[in-house]
Design a protein around this nucleic acid. Sequence first.
DNA 1: CCCCCATTCTTGACTAATTCAAGATAACTG
DNA 2: CAGTTATCTTGAATTAGTCAAGAATGGGGG
Lengths: 147, 147
Amino acid sequence: MSPETDFPQLLRGAGLRVTRPRLEVLAAVYALPHCDTDSVIGAVRRNVPDVSHQAVYDSLRALSTAGLVRKIQPAGSVARYEARVGDNHHHVVCRSCGQIADVDCAVGERPCLHASDDHGFVIDEAEVTYWGLCPDCAAAAVPEPTH
Amino acid sequence: MSPETDFPQLLRGAGLRVTRPRLEVLAAVYALPHCDTDSVIGAVRRNVPDVSHQAVYDSLRALSTAGLVRKIQPAGSVARYEARVGDNHHHVVCRSCGQIADVDCAVGERPCLHASDDHGFVIDEAEVTYWGLCPDCAAAAVPEPTH
DNA sequence: CCCCCATTCTTGACTAATTCAAGATAACTG
DNA sequence: CAGTTATCTTGAATTAGTCAAGAATGGGGG
């Protein structure tokens, strides 16, 4: 098993206790791209039917704080989580259906952009969200020219 | 009165009916930088004590849709509104106290950044949020060297 | 290997922000 | 000035998430 998916090891490495809910939550976030809390709860309950929603909320918070998952919250969306952490990638969000896709950051290091005037703020991250229409919604909005 | 602050004219120009709640909401957003809905309700009620919260929510939505105000929703914050529209400026948000400041976009036109791989999305905006600590919170976290 | 205790989980109530819906009111058109 | 339709009022509902108290359990120390 690659170190990337040895979930018990990931938890221990982050100083977190290894519990069933956390393992399942971690697996769910690895399996479901940009999943929201509800779908994590659903995925976890497929294997452990009796976990409380609170346990999932707690796990997601512990994992986010530990840096094992990343929480994203595009405007108008509920909280979403992803397993791709440590790099400085960004997201495209479809204004119509809410679909999210990853966008690599060209720069790489954080913050990947510098503010023109930082107002004295100590900036550690530049979060970029691209807004637009996903391929499907764009096609529906402006039908392909029929030629 | 400059066209910038002739609120009835702004509303008419956007095809919106001129109503007391809308005028007051517009004035509040112009007066209060990055204000949330609650402070808009408070400001409006100082002049018109009986406006319903729903009227304010409706007005804010109408004004946002018409492009007269801009709605911003940094993760972890309630919806906030600002009167600076039309340009493509960004925001710095303090992780500690939530304070928001404007950051000019160096590029100007939208989207101000292009995605390295757009996954077929039709992108119309690149929203940048800088995260860090405001001067006050930074000073509190890492005290000024005493000499 | 077992005990202990801090951490985590369960249960269930609660909150905040926002939306929904139905009827009353008021802004613009002609 | 009257009609039409958008907007506002009122009041309830929803959603996503947090809070809190007590039960359970992971993992270090004996």
